[in-house]
Write a protein that binds this DNA or RNA. Structure first.
Length: 481
RNA sequence: GCCGGUAUAGUUCAAUGGUAGAACAGUGCACUCAUAAAGCACAAAAAAUGGUUCAAUUCCAUUUACCGGCACCA
């Protein structure tokens, strides 16, 4: 039978800074969905990678006195190492916006959109703060002054830029949304973007003078300009598939793979509208779904920031508690769509109750009985698939709810042991006690199966213990005080 | 300012036009297979005002508080 295909991607983080908790959330969630789809038999293409162009990266490299290419190469290696720390699938595909084939794809994309009449040149006024020596957006200004340099009026710099005819896509986007009522998840984000578009779209600038921003992809047939972020970065979602050369992969995963994009809520507009308009402009099919995460905040919903000192680094969590502990918290405790706080205290509470006292302890108590009384699962029991039910939540990207249900099963087994007391029964009615333990093993194996996309490492450990009829040598998750 | 949303136990979240459920934290009991774990029990909640209704936490309106969006910021 021919396998069905599935494509999923994260956004590409900037290569010049370490990944924060929000990145970890997006990556781990996309990984979970990718893993789940593989389990139910899909041929999955999972994309992530790094955005490596732009003035900030260029300047940072200069500041560190190294060649820009070396700087981004190093950043990319760091990125890959961090993905390992998040327990990502090994078969994830990486795209770098400095990859040669990506650069060619971005230029080809530009050419097509230009041929279709959606790119034109016009004068563009940017606001420039002499103090910062950089361009500013309106949202960065107050009363026409940059916040870091009050009293210094920003100056207006005029230059010729290429523009994308975004304004031509109002109705096309609204039509597309109308036909795809689940295009953006959750629906309140969908409403936001709809009302944004109904307020009217303005064309936006898509190039910069190369003399001012040397580190970027050249605009086709115009060596004086490089692409500004949009046409460069957003096209990664198809260049990773080999577009425009490898149309086989493109057809398989983009056209027939329900391309699904995870992103944070600050990216709603870019992924949900801008990129979609660009695809229409290029005559290419739209994404299938955009799934939008909330933010990870500090306690009380306030923003994480260095000055407040409430930043939790995902790498520190992994170092102290392990990969699956981080994944557990992100996938179970963080709301699937709303903002959620991440504090060490919350994390520790959740770790102790859910992983140490919950799952870890359950594995210990069941395996001890199974080993002591030598109860093993039959080959047939080991083959039973657990992915027939209860996956609706995953299909709706409500991972949070899915994981909660697994923990409901864990609780049920604890209650079962307490009620049936096989450890007592074994002295009175051995056959019945062995049946109980078999039941427990069977359902524990089921829990391990459900956990496969959530906590891949732990899932494998539990399955091995059951198959080999062994107790864990050390607690799966040591209680932390 | 405009548009949208939210307000339920100490905390994070449910359900519901007619007894408001759970998890974590708390208190107590009790068990020993297990990581001083798990189990059982107890305690604990509808922002305010008004309206519709036999009946409102639920529907409607107003007020208050908070959150999100309102463009070139990944």
């Amino acid at each position: 039978m021919k396998k069905e295909n599935f494509y999923i991607t994260t956004t590409l983080p900037y290569v010049n800074a370490p990944l924060h908790m929000g990145h970890a959330l997006e990556l781990v969630r996309a990984d979970t969905i990718a893993h789940y789809k593989k389990l139910i038999g899909y041929d999955v293409y999972f994309n992530t990678g790094t955005d490596e162009h732009g003035i900030k990266i260029y300047e940072k490299a200069k500041e560190n006195k190294i060649a820009v290419q070396d700087f981004v190469d190093k950043g990319f290696e760091t990125f890959k190492e961090q993905l390992k720390m998040f327990g990502m699938s090994k078969d994830v595909h990486f795209i770098r916006t400095t990859d040669k084939h990506h650069e060619i794809a971005a230029q080809e994309f530009w050419k097509i959109v230009s041929q279709n009449g959606y790119i034109y040149k016009k004068n563009y006024e940017t606001k420039y703060c002499i103090g910062c020596e950089s361009e500013k957006t309106d949202s960065e200004l107050e009363n026409g002054e940059c916040l870091d340099h009050p009293g210094v009026k920003v100056s207006l710099i005029s230059e010729e830029n290429y523009f994308f005819k975004y304004s031509a896509f109002e109705n096309k986007l609204l039509d597309f949304y109308e036909k795809n009522p689940n295009f953006i998840i959750p629906d309140f984000r969908f409403n936001e973007i709809k009302s944004f578009i109904k307020n009217g779209l303005q064309d936006f600038s898509i190039s910069r003078l190369k003399s001012k921003m040397p580190w970027g992809i050249e605009v086709p047939n115009d060596g004086d300009h490089v692409m500004y972020v949009w046409f460069d970065a957003l096209t990664n979602y198809i260049s990773t598939l080999g577009w425009p050369d490898n149309l086989e992969n493109f057809e398989k995963y983009w056209i027939n793979g329900n391309p699904t994009q995870y992103c944070g809520k600050d990216n709603t507009r870019f992924q949900g509208a801008m990129w979609q308009a660009m695809l229409i402009a290029a005559g290419l099919p739209n994404s299938h779904q955009i799934v939008i995460n909330g933010f990870i905040t500090g306690d009380g919903g306030i923003r994480m920031s260095k000055t407040l000192g409430n930043v939790v680094d995902p790498r520190d969590i992994v170092k102290e508690y392990g990969i699956d502990a981080l994944r557990y918290f992100l996938l179970r405790e963080v709301s699937s769509f709303e903002d959620s706080p991440f504090t060490i205290e919350r994390f520790k509470n959740s770790y102790n109750s859910g992983l140490a006292n919950g799952l870890g302890n359950l594995v210990s108590r069941i395996m001890t009985m199974a080993v002591n009384y030598n109860v093993k699962l039959s080959e047939e029991d080991l083959k039973t698939g657990y992915y027939t039910n209860s996956v609706e939540d995953l299909e709706n990207f409500d991972i949070n709810k899915f994981v909660n249900n697994i923990w409901f099963n864990i609780k049920n087994l604890d209650e079962y042991i307490q009620k049936e007391e096989p450890f007592k029964k074994i002295k009175i009615d051995e056959e019945k006690a062995r049946k109980d333990i078999n039941y427990l093993l069977f359902h524990l194996y089921g829990i391990a199966s459900l956990l496969e996309p959530i906590l891949p490492e732990t899932s494998q450990k539990i399955k091995d213990l059951i198959k080999e009829n062994k107790k864990p040598e050390q607690p799966l998750f040591l209680r932390k005080e």
